[in-house]
């Protein structure tokens, strides 16, 4: 026995792998990568297909060739759209509506969230829940009563609200304000109470506490809310479809559909180009604010 153990000690000893991953973890990672890649393919295929189609002529799109390859790449679709007055009008309408809606949303929801999160007043908790509940009502339920309200308003005052692009400035905040208020309440609630008490003792008014302390500290949340409001306004389809009809009043998502689908003729190349160009602004905003956005989504998770 003594001999055996002596020999055994001469053999190379399996060294403990410090800091290395165990088998379970390696497998967990492999599966994660597998599904992540699957997801990435699943979600990236449509935009790639859009890009490929946007570079084709109408003839090539309808030809029975490989749909995943461009044989005669062309930028005609882009040229036509970017020189088309109506497309630029939709784009401009969308841009104005989104920017103004984001501003209106922030101007309302940030002070509202601050008041609901911090200034304890009678009914503030109920009100905060109420704000969230309004968000839960789907827009498909709202647009018919809203339409009716606008019609009655028109009867009484003579002011037409239907088929005006700026009416979207009133409509979109009904979607964005409740949700943004709700996220901002969460952010503001995660800021320690002592911070506003310190500001209060330092001589700050409620408004100064909001602008000088809360907004800078909750900046990630503010950016998350901004991105949300922008995305909702930019991509909103149902309200503009229902409330605007004339070509000069349309926003991008509706404009592309109404002007590029004529009867049963689908101008696929331009539809894809228009949608791709239309997706650019949110994409650019995401890219710039991504770091903040991620921080915004995860902050508050640990602070309760």
């Amino acid at each position: 026995m003594a001999n055996v153990s002596a020999i055994a000690t001469d053999l190379p000893v399996a060294r403990p792998k410090y800091g290395s991953m165990n088998r379970d973890r390696i497998w967990a990672l492999r599966w994660s990568y597998f599904f992540l890649v699957l997801f990435a393919i699943f979600f990236l295929l449509p935009p790639i297909y859009m890009l490929i189609t946007s570079l084709k002529t109408s003839a090539e799109i309808s030809a029975a060739t490989n749909p995943w390859w461009v044989f005669n790449p062309t930028l005609d679709n882009y040229k036509e759209l970017l020189t088309s007055n109506s497309y630029l009008t939709y784009f401009r309408n969308s841009a104005i509506v989104s920017v103004v809606v984001v501003s209106i949303t922030m101007l309302i929801s940030v002070p509202a969230a601050f008041a609901l999160a911090r200034m304890k007043f009678w009914g503030s908790a109920t009100l905060a829940t109420g704000v969230f509940l309004t968000y839960l009502i789907p827009e498909t339920l709202l647009f018919i009563p809203l339409f009716k309200m606008f019609a009655i308003f028109n009867e009484w005052t003579g002011i037409a609200l239907i088929n005006r692009w700026w009416v979207l400035l009133i409509l979109y905040p009904t979607l964005t304000v409740p949700f943004c208020t709700w996220i901002m309440i969460g952010y503001f609630a995660s800021i320690p109470k002592e911070l506003d008490e310190a500001a209060l003792i330092d001589g700050a008014t409620w408004m100064q506490t909001l602008t000088k302390i809360f907004i800078p500290v909750a900046l990630p949340g503010l950016i998350a809310a901004t991105i949300f409001a922008f995305t909702v306004s930019w991509a909103q389809f149902l309200y503009p479809l229902a409330f605007t009809t004339s070509a000069d009043q349309l926003v991008l998502p509706v404009g592309i559909i109404t002007s590029l689908i004529k009867g049963d003729v689908f101008n696929w190349g331009q539809i894809m180009t228009g949608a791709l160009l239309g997706a650019a602004p949110p994409l650019i905003i995401y890219a710039f604010l991504m770091d903040y956005y991620i921080a915004g989504l995860t902050a508050g998770a640990t602070k309760g």
Binding site: E197, A198, V217
Partner: peptide, 20 residues
């Protein structure tokens, strides 16, 4: 009298420094 007009200063347990 509101805190800001009492001419007092307070030091909190968790410091309450403005992080930004």
């Amino acid at each position: 009298v509101p805190p800001k007009d009492r001419d007092i200063a307070m030091v909190f347990q968790n410091y309450a420094l403005y992080p930004h």
